[in-house]
Every structure is written in C-alpha cells, then in structure tokens.
Simulated scan of single mutants.
Amino acid sequence: MLKVCLVFLSVLIAPVAAQALDLRAIVDQHILSGYQQLADRSAELAKASESSCEAGHDALTPAFHVAFDAWVAVSHLRFGPSEQQDRAFALAFWPDSRGVTPKTLSGLLRSQDPAIDDLALYQHVSIAARGFYALEFLLFDAAFVDKPSSKSCALIKVIAEDISANANAILEGWNQGYASLLAEANNDTYRSRDEAVKQLYTSLTTGLQFTAMTRLGRPLGTFSKPRPKRAEARRSGRSLRHVILSLKANQRLAALLSDNDKAIDARFQHVIQQAEDLNDPVLQGVNDPMSRIRIEALQGAINTINDSLALDLAPKLGITAGFNSMDGD
C-alpha cells in the first residue's frame, strides 16, 4: 500500500514541479543575459578589429577571447533566433571535418573577392568562412599569420563585423517576441508550458552531450589513434577552456531548472573541478596513456551527469523516461 501511495505521490509531484518553474526568470537570467553579453562583447571585437588590425594581431587577441567566451556560454541554446537564417552556424562552423574553413578563406584572399570589403556581400559567402573559427585561423594559424595577404586585415574586420551583426540579430529576435513565446507558452510555437520546459531541458542535455562526445570525443579518437589536432579551437589554446565554460553554462541552466538542487549543483561542481585539474589547454594529453585516462574519466563523468539528470530532474519536470533529447520528441 505504501509503495502505491509513493508512486501516486510522484505522479502528482512531477507536473506541480514543472508548473512551478519561473520561465520568465530563466529567459531573463540565462538566455537574454547571455545573448546580451554576446552582443556586447562582439561589438567590442568589431571595434577592436577596426583600430587594431594593422598594429598587429596581438592587440585583437583579448577582444577575440572575451567574445568567444560569450558565444560558448550560450552555445547550448540552439533554438529560436539562433537557428533562424543559420545564425548559429555562421557564428560557429565547427566541427569542420573536411577542412573547408582554411580553404575558403585562402580562396577569398587569393581572388581578393569584393565581399571582403562589403559586410552585406560577406553575409552571403560560405558559412565556413564566417564566425569565430574562421577568425581564429586568421589570427592564430601560421599559414595566415606568417604570410599575410594585402587583404588580411580587411577580411579580419569584415568577419568581426559579421559576428557582431549576427549576435545582434539573435538578441533582437529574442527581445522582439521569442522571449515571450518561451516564457508565456500557450502559443503556436510552444503549445504548453510542458513544451517550453522540454525545450530548455533539451538544451541542457544536448549541451552536455556535445561537450562529452564532440569537444572531448573528437580529440580522443581511439586509443590506438588519438586525434589531438581535432580539438576545438586548439590554435588559440581554447580547447579545455570551452569544456569548462560550457559546463559552467549548463550548471547555471540546471540550477534554474531544478530550483537550485544542491545535489545536482555538487555533481556539476565536481566535474568542473575535474576539468580544471587537467591543466591541458589543447587536450594534447590524449596522446599520453596516463593523461588520456583522465580525459576519458572527464568524458565519463559528464555522461554520468546527463544520466543522473534523466533520473532525477526529468521526472520532476514532467518529462517521461522515453524522451530523447537528441531528437526533441
């Protein structure tokens, strides 16, 4: 009888917990604030590119890193305005498994394409030549830094301007309607609060999956064939930094979704510390058996958090066990 009562009580608790979520607070504190940071930092990057490129790339480096940090902090929010007109891909075309980005950049410079001098035209070039990863090549890759073209500075400037324009467009999309669609639900986009909650939970879990399987999985490769050159943003020394930043962003979203559940927060804090302790900026340790074990352990710990969220958080949000965050069903 007690077991039946407990099951019945858990069924009652789940929808109540989901209904108690303050969706407006999540939108304001996590989404809008994150995209505002991205827009502000990207504007600073564009301004720095205007005044500093000819003086040397070192002057641009701080603005690049700060703006890139802001993108990683919202990179798990792949829905709504960031997905319209492929804006997220235009900001972050990675992984680039075929090496299209450097080839496209080289082609633009070699041909001195007029789009290099015109933002409106540049917004129609291949996505592979746009965004943070394209800019990283121009600022940090020896092939571009050691042998600059006469158009290198112009290309850096237009990419930075494009990043800023895209960041502003995403923020504008949220401020001019999409924020209300998610926060208030019961509309054509989110037919119920449950759908809005599921969207946020999907962002959390797919963000964790991307970090484990792509940010760590790609350089890990296999034991017999590690792939350190596949690490994200390795040219600028940001590979581990992206893992840590994304975990911290996911931690903040998990706290908002779980009403600051201390157990969930402790799991995140433990895995963040695990990542920080690696002290391996470009994940070069995948080549060394002992260091590789620690990177694999970090990957496993991130997957374990995702598993625990499915057991502990999802039911409280009214999300069924059969829900697959990868397909949104």
Rank of each mutant, 00 (worst) to 15 (best):
R267D: 15
R87W: 02
L204W: 05
A160L: 08
S246A: 05
W174I: 12
T189Q: 09
G328T: 12
L181G: 02
P281M: 13
M213A: 15
K103M: 14
V243I: 15
P62V: 04
Q199K: 12
Q273F: 11
W94E: 05
L216T: 15
A314E: 11
N175E: 14
R267A: 05
A185Q: 09
A55W: 03
G99K: 13
A321C: 04
S111D: 15
L139R: 00
I163E: 01
D141Y: 03
A88I: 01
A212G: 08
A18N: 13
L6W: 14
A92W: 04
Q251G: 01
L108H: 08
A231M: 07
E172P: 00
A263M: 09
R98F: 02
R130Y: 00
H76E: 01
F68R: 12
H76P: 01
R234T: 07
R235P: 01
T61A: 10
S82M: 07
L135S: 02
L216G: 14
R41E: 14
S33V: 09
A231T: 05
I244K: 04
Q123H: 07
C53E: 03
P62T: 05
S192Y: 06
T104C: 04
I319E: 08
L45Y: 04
Q199C: 08
R294G: 11
A160N: 11
A275H: 09
A167L: 00
D40S: 08
R193W: 03
A183G: 04
P102T: 12
D265R: 06
R24N: 11
A46Y: 04
R294D: 13
K198F: 08
D113V: 08
P62I: 01
H57P: 00
K3Q: 11
G131L: 02
Q85V: 10
A185C: 02
V282D: 07
N187R: 04
A20G: 05
L155M: 02
E184Y: 06
R98W: 06
L119V: 14
R234I: 11
K3T: 09
V158N: 06
A55N: 04
V243C: 07
Q123T: 10
V100W: 07
S51M: 00
E44A: 10
